[in-house]
Simulated scan of single mutants.
Amino acid sequence: MTVSAASLLTRMRTRRGLSMNAVAALAGVPASTISRIEAGKIEPTVAMLDRIATAIGFRLDAEVTESGTDAPFVAPLRRLAEGSPDARGAVLATFPIVAALAPVTRRAGVRRVELTVALPEALAALRSEDAGPVVSSLEAFASDVGVVRSFTPVVYVTDPKVVRSLRDVSRGSSTVMLLMPTTDNVRAFTREVDGVAMVSPEWGLLDALASPGRQADVARTVLEASLVRPETAVA
């Protein structure tokens, strides 16, 4: 059975529970384009449909499937980098929606490990085995690893499954850290801060919003403060 672009886009949008305006904002296209595609008034190119699907966390295949990647983060972060300061607030306002499209616990290759030492010590151990750690979450937003601000810190490494310096979580684990595979997208938004590789503050905030439980709540509070005062950091 042939599936039209109109029905495919409608399925993806309703599955995410998004309005046409929200999809347009995430994909960086006019809302009228989304409306006209769904109404069958225009037939999008494969590139356009793929752009929209990627922006809301899907990949085009024989069927609509979860992408399980960080791809939804890229478009809003690029708009922040390339847009005017006046547009920053509108892009940041989409962050809770964007984060919900790429939950950290559902991305491919994620591994839960125990954090039984200070974060800098854990990072040193990861560097000693050439894991190439890149700090994310609230620590990256604050550009500081001196204090663990996250309930579940997020650190990207080359390959989580081969890390030996940190143990998998057990029933009695108090602090859990998520090891995520470093992707090309992560590399594109990585910088060095005081000798520590970190994702950009905006990527870190997205990962915090995409984290489970109380961490997402704290991140939403931080985001709200940032919308009022763009340079607000984690206290």
Rank of each mutant, 00 (worst) to 15 (best):
L9F: 03
G89E: 14
R16C: 06
V145P: 02
M180N: 13
R167F: 04
T221C: 02
I52V: 06
V157S: 02
T182G: 00
A90P: 02
A125R: 12
V176R: 07
Q215S: 09
F151R: 15
K161P: 04
L77F: 04
A235W: 11
G195M: 00
T190V: 13
F151P: 01
A100D: 15
L179S: 14
E38C: 03
V157A: 01
S150P: 08
E63K: 11
S170E: 15
P85T: 14
R127A: 11
E43N: 03
L49F: 01
W203R: 07
M20F: 05
S143C: 02
E66F: 05
V193L: 07
M198F: 09
R214E: 11
S19C: 03
A118T: 14
I56E: 12
R214N: 10
R220C: 05
A108E: 15
Q215D: 06
L18H: 13
M177R: 08
S165N: 05
A125W: 13
V162M: 06
A25K: 14
E43H: 07
N21M: 03
E114T: 08
P44R: 08
V147H: 15
T94Y: 09
F151S: 07
V145K: 06
R51T: 14
L101D: 10
S174V: 15
V64W: 05
E43Y: 01
R111H: 10
R106L: 13
L92M: 12
T65S: 05
A216Y: 12
G132A: 15
A81M: 07
S67N: 13
E43A: 07
V234Y: 05
M48Q: 14
S136I: 11
M1L: 03
R106G: 03
V98K: 10
R220K: 12
D168Q: 06
F151C: 01
L18C: 06
V148G: 09
D207R: 13
